[in-house]
Design a protein around this nucleic acid. Structure first.
Lengths: 206, 206
DNA sequence: ATAATGAAAAATGTATACAAAAAATATAAT
DNA sequence: ATTATATTTTTTGTATACATTTTTCATTAT
């Protein structure tokens, strides 16, 4: 496991202090490496929104907040149906099979949040990659990456997983039967609904 | 000027090889620094789309291509009107004044592409920042950053600058007079038109 | 001639050491 | 007591040196 992944995992599971600057030496001791790879990882994490600058020096783990969640869902709802639309006719039976496999794995228990996040993206990836629009794809992936910081909520107290899974299977069925416009609508609604639920939950807990 | 900025400037002005991996030692000799800051800069530039991975090791400057330009414009046309919509009522007279100042500077000659890119964003920033939607704002800024790689075309052979400037001024007028829906429409159309022109141009030259 | 294998080289990744900058603390003045 | 300033300490930034990986190129077998 890469240092970058380890830190992400620790952020997801609240094993690192939120709101207090992360010190390079602390991290280098914690993960038993020198400061150079720590710096690399920090920069990458910052670029992906897992960390934000803190004054002139230092990075902090930003607190989860409903405004960010709302914006992320908003953008996803805008861009992902577009991407699926481009991909739609290029999605093969093999692709759908892979997507189902990812969903099946998600149903297993004992997964870490990091693993759940990766499986979740593995599912979406199948729907988006065949679009052959690398630039749009990268942005969507990045948004999903950022959104994965909120998975702890969606898979924890909210218990949204079952319903979400069901909609994912439905989506695959619509793709298989070529019902494009219905599929696009379901995807859009799925993202918006999950977003609203998440935002409401975040608002209520803070 | 930061190393990161210098490299960006050199990419914009084709002073670095396109399509061939950039070597860390080459760059460290070129800019007279060690490999450590070079690595930092490369990583940041990669995260922002100025560089892409090349196999297992090394980064290359990706060639400009109409597909990327199209995707960037598409996303901008989706997201920027949204952001302006949120910001609209919070834009102050002082903001508009600042935006005009940026446009005035853009009319001067002798600006480097890097400077033009920065002024261009300074203008847009005024329209988007008051929205107070940091997450959406960051993505939009990132898209504009990536799009600035194509400024060499828009400000060079295409001679689109004059027309673009005029629309920018119009947009400010609409904001001042509170004509929200017209302003949003103009912005959307502005981005789409510029995009189509750019894409057509890129298609024709390759 | 071509493909496969292995040795040499070149390139990146990482650790340590030092320099510069920022933050924290103590000291002095009002 | 509070603010301003100086000093120390902490933290980040960078250079150099070494380790590991990747690539390249020569050698050999088919």
């Amino acid at each position: 496991m890469q240092l970058y992944q380890k830190i992400k995992d620790d952020i997801l599971n609240n094993r690192l202090p939120v709101g207090r600057p992360l010190r390079q030496v602390e991290l280098s001791e914690r993960y038993q490496v020198s400061r150079i790879p720590v710096r690399d990882a920090l920069q990458k994490l910052k670029a992906e929104g897992w960390l934000v600058s803190h004054g002139k020096a230092g990075h902090i783990i930003p607190d989860l907040n409903w405004q960010e969640a709302e914006d992320l869902c908003l953008m996803r709802a805008d861009l992902e149906p577009r991407l699926l639309s481009y991909a739609f006719d290029s999605i093969t039976a093999e692709d759908v099979k892979q997507a189902r496999a990812a969903l099946a794995l998600l149903d297993k228990s004992g997964l870490s949040l990091l693993e759940k996040g990766e499986l979740n993206w593995a599912f979406h990836k199948v729907l988006y990659f065949p679009a052959n629009r690398p630039t749009l794809y990268k942005v969507v992936r990045s948004l999903n990456q950022q959104a994965s910081r909120y998975l702890g909520f969606q898979y924890g107290p909210m218990n949204y997983q079952d319903h979400s899974q069901q909609e994912h299977f439905e989506l695959l069925n619509l793709i298989e039967s070529g019902e494009k416009s219905t599929a696009l609508l379901l995807l859009s609604q799925h993202i918006k609904d999950a977003g609203q639920l998440l935002v409401a939950h975040l608002k209520s807990t803070n």
